[in-house]
Design a protein around this nucleic acid. Structure first.
Length: 423
RNA sequence: GGAGGCGUCGCCUAGUCCGGUCUAUGGCGCCGCACUGCUAAUGCGGUUUGGGGCUUCAACCCCAUCGGGAGUUCAAAUCUCCCCGCCUCCGCCA
């Protein structure tokens, strides 16, 4: 949710932001009108409620005819209070509904445009030159006995897979390497619940535009999270954090579930786009004035981790029209995938400013009092990284060189060799 | 799953039976001031959160807030119902 004061005091900046996202800016006027209606209703309610209270106090002190007269008046007032209260509740609901539809105000400097207008900030590493025909990640995964999509489909359906043998070990090594880096950097490691209540899903903004990608268990009224951002953000829901404890950084390890609705026929091969994967996610709570610097730090940690797996990648600044509603700015790191001849997203870091914390009622207390804080998130490693690792480090015989930083997490193994045959 | 107990503005706690100056008691902690070589102790004042008004800011005023919601009533921390959470005992099962 946006800061109500920004909408009230500087509606023009909110309109401009809505337009940049390709969203409706007339919503701002509707919000302002609803705000006036709501405040009038509150003022009216407060006035007659105060009268009712003082009357009630006198009722308690008198007896006989005087009391009977006061009671008659009080009864009349009580009816008015009910009407005023209903008007206030309706006014608040209308206002909240409209406010909830406004997206976060985009940060200065965000590129204009949509999906294809991300600005490339830098290229790191050089795409490998092969003197043989490179195999794609699935073919490599099958040669290595690492990825089994056929049985994934048999048991669970399309977009499911098994990681087996060195594939399972490779994923564990990568996630452990990422977690080790995060802990070294001072993050608190967390294994969160992956089933959450509606309030957590709602508060983190995943029941809006992204709702169609969320799995729900109707019998329990619980949702499967698509990222540990959800339980990490909701962790401090309804709390006031001491400013001295900020920035507060968590690294969550969780399985992530996504319906991938509307992606039929897209990335169907291998494990690039799947319904279930594992991820190490960074999550920061910090003071609003520190959010932009923290965003750069998160990006820095992502780059540090990408350097360890030694894949070529580029950093892009996502355009306004392609931002999620809670993000003010988003940077993606996209790795080179040789057999596709293009860059694919491996990490994504968003600065949600106070947008998310306001919905989740997470605040900080400092000398200035109690106020909403900023939340940010960023990817540190996911199952998808295996695609880039396998393809970029492959050799002519189908073996794959293990990046040096990962070797200690793979029992010192330097090369993944094709297996003679898989069961 | 069954039975019982409990949930009060940071923590502990009074109040709930029997509705009305509860405008929520007291202690601890914390903040400010005073006093005192320093510290400690002591005294005085303050100390939930959200919203609205007023305002340059601060101060101040008002409304809501006793786990959440609904109901009864002129009036609910207090009575009724539903839900959530915690504790104890019993049953069942990884």
């Amino acid at each position: 949710m946006l800061d109500p004061r920004i909408v009230r005091d500087d509606p023009e900046s909110v309109r401009a932001s809505q337009r940049a996202r390709g969203e409706d800016d007339s919503l701002v006027d509707a919000v302002l009108a609803a705000d006036r209606t709501r405040r009038d209703a509150i003022a009216h309610y407060d006035r007659i409620r105060a009268e009712q209270k003082s009357l009630g106090r006198r009722v308690a002190q008198v007896t006989g005819e005087e009391k009977a007269a006061l009671l008659a008046h009080s009864k009349d007032l009580s009816a008015q209070v009910k009407v005023a209260e209903a008007a206030q509740v309706a006014g608040d609901a209308a206002y909240d509904e409209l406010m909830g539809r406004l997206s976060n105000v985009v940060e200065d400097g965000v590129p204009a445009g949509g999906e294809n207008d991300a600005r490339v900030l830098e290229h790191i590493g050089t795409p490998p030159e092969f003197d043989f025909e490179p195999r794609d990640h699935l073919e490599l995964g099958q040669l290595l006995g690492a990825i089994d999509t056929e049985r994934g489909v048999k048991v669970s359906g399309a977009r499911f897979y098994y990681l087996t043998g060195v594939g399972a070990l490779l994923q564990l090594a990568m996630l452990n390497l990422a977690m080790a880096q995060a802990v070294e950097a001072g993050f608190i490691p967390v294994v969160p619940p992956v089933l959450v209540k509606p309030a957590a899903m709602e508060g983190t903004g995943f029941l809006g535009q992204a709702a169609e990608n969320v799995y729900r268990l109707p019998d329990e009224d619980l949702y499967l999270v698509g990222t540990s951002e959800v339980p990490l953000a909701a962790y401090h829901m309804d709390e006031v954090l001491d400013a001295a404890s900020l920035p507060l950084r968590y690294a969550g390890w969780s399985t992530c579930f996504r319906r991938e609705a509307g992606t039929y026929g897209k990335d169907t091969r291998g494990i690039l786009r799947v319904h279930q994967f594992d991820k190490i996610e960074m999550f920061s709570y910090c003071a609003p004035e520190d959010a932009q610097a923290e965003h750069q730090r998160l990006l820095g940690w992502e780059k540090e981790m990408l350097a360890k797996v030694e894949v070529p990648y580029r950093v892009v600044d996502i355009a306004a029209g392609d931002l999620g509603s809670s993000a003010a700015r988003k940077y993606d790191c996209e790795a080179w995938v040789p057999t596709q001849g293009r860059y694919r997203e491996l990490t994504s870091t968003s600065n949600c400013t106070q947008f998310q914390s306001r919905r989740l009622r997470i605040r900080m207390r400092d000398a200035d009092g109690v106020r909403p804080l900023a939340t940010l998130n960023g990817t540190l490693a996911t199952t998808r990284w295996i695609v880039a690792i396998l393809e970029n480090h492959q050799q002519a015989d189908g073996s794959v060189v293990v990046p040096a930083a990962m070797r200690p997490f793979l029992g010192g193994r330097e090369v993944l060799e094709p297996v003679a045959r898989t069961p």
